[in-house]
Write a protein that binds this DNA or RNA. Structure first.
Lengths: 256, 256
DNA sequence: CAGAAATTGCCACAAAATGCCACATCGGAT
DNA sequence: ATCCGATGTGGCATTTTGTGGCAATTTCTG
């Protein structure tokens, strides 16, 4: 009898962690049919790799300090602002654009504040609230169930609404870029939704700040074949850069 | 055997704190199913980390528990807050409710912050953003074109989405109440949309603060025959009160 | 304004859950 | 056959949580 691999058990743990932000030893032991001691050893191993933080009774993600949207905004703010400004330079008067949710696209929204005669579609509450106060910007909110972490709408309603639109530009964020240069996302649903956003756009830009490089999130992202540009604040590591080149994704460097 | 993680409990507290500015020990203890002493110990731990300020009976964020900027800027804030609290008393655990856009419904949203296990549908960006930060509240945003004045979604998309829902309670604002006791609205579209919201609700409440009395806005509002209640902060003028009585609309007086 | 009633804070101790370590067991690899 | 790594088991220390009593504070009431 081959027992389930320790690796796959640890993968399961990481997924559960990503999904809910915290996992308990007891629950995992029960769920995975192993002893609590084994789970504890797994957690220790993951903690050594920096993939989990051990707390009493289990493990949590993101240290004791929560990475809320506000916190994520603060992280690498200058890099994100630079990406935002660069991305904004592609938006011309009269255009209709999609802005994905996330702190990087929020930075883009700030850069679009003074524009006139543009139309923005977004599923992000903060972006919609910000841009609707700008007289020159028309905002359409994509409805759906609100994910508290992203403060943005996801779900069937959102997907259904998206199908109706055809826009000039789509600006999409990513959860991470795997060491192999593959964009990844946090959930199947989010990935699916971003994919449809991409398909709605004539041109698609991915916004990737350097903290995303070599960060692997659980789901492989669905990507459209043609990407108009991948806007970054720092050059990606060699291996990732080569992967991008192989796919003919132009890397656009924003400078602070 | 299986204890929920202390850290996720503390996360919950911080989120509730971020959302509403203040939390009470008793409420949290009940919500989270632990003893008050445990909550107190959590608060102490959070206070040590500077993530909460302990006050008698609970904890507050920032210097004092203050209503948000938007709520304070609103005219007749105290009356609206009273209406909000009164309206909230009709919302029970497990219910699905619609919140219309507007400053009075925003006051209701504040009153719903600490609730658990309720689902809110709204077209208002500030309400969605506020409530999605509250751990016990599930929020669905109704998408559509954003009206910058209301910071809320209106339009065909919103109407179409609304058709799919059937909810327990609908809380609707009005533009004004004409001297003849007729609810009025600002635009045909808004009126139509509110009408559909009403039809989606099993019970419909109108929220009317006294500044609306004898204010006439351009469009006659479409109203469903049965109104479960008209929640006010002051008794309406005689003529309006008689009109309400004639329609069998119960007037519910909120007290500050 | 004073006193009563209710709520809350605090402390100490007990109970429960968890962490940790040493050692036993099992299966596969050398 | 033996070694080695992974896992389970049991005992004990540590941490967390619950409980009850009592003081302090707030709120109600006349």
């Amino acid at each position: 009898m081959n027992r389930p691999l320790a690796i796959s058990r640890q993968d399961h743990i990481v997924k559960a962690l990503d999904a809910s932000g915290a996992v308990s030893v007891s629950l995992l032991a029960e769920r995975l049919g192993v002893s609590r001691e084994t789970i504890r050893r797994d957690l220790k191993a993951l903690a050594d790799q920096g993939r989990a933080n051990i707390v009493h009774g289990g493990a949590a993600r993101g240290a004791t300090a929560e990475p809320s949207l506000a916190a994520r905004q603060a992280a690498n703010a200058s890099g994100k602002a630079a990406i935002g400004r660069k991305a904004a330079s592609f938006v011309e008067e009269g255009m209709v654009v999609i802005l994905d949710s996330g702190s990087t696209t929020l930075a883009l929204a700030y850069a679009l504040l003074e524009r006139k005669d543009i139309t923005v579609l977004t599923n992000s509450l903060p972006i919609a609230l910000l841009l609707c106060r700008s007289p020159g910007v028309k905002v359409t909110m994509l409805g759906g169930e609100i994910d508290p972490n992203d403060e943005a709408a996801f779900g069937l309603d959102t997907l259904a609404t998206l199908e109706h639109f055809r826009v000039d530009l789509a600006f999409i964020g990513v959860g991470g870029i795997s060491p192999e240069g593959e964009p990844t996302d946090y959930s199947r649903l989010a990935s699916e939704q971003r994919h449809i956003m991409m398909k709605a756009g004539q041109k698609v830009f991915l916004l990737v700040d350097h903290s995303k490089f070599e960060r692997r999130t659980p789901v492989k992202m669905l990507v459209v074949p043609r990407i108009a540009g991948l806007i970054v604040d720092k050059p990606p590591p060699k291996r990732i850069a080569q992967a991008f080149m192989g796919r003919r994704w132009p890397v656009i460097q924003a400078r602070a």
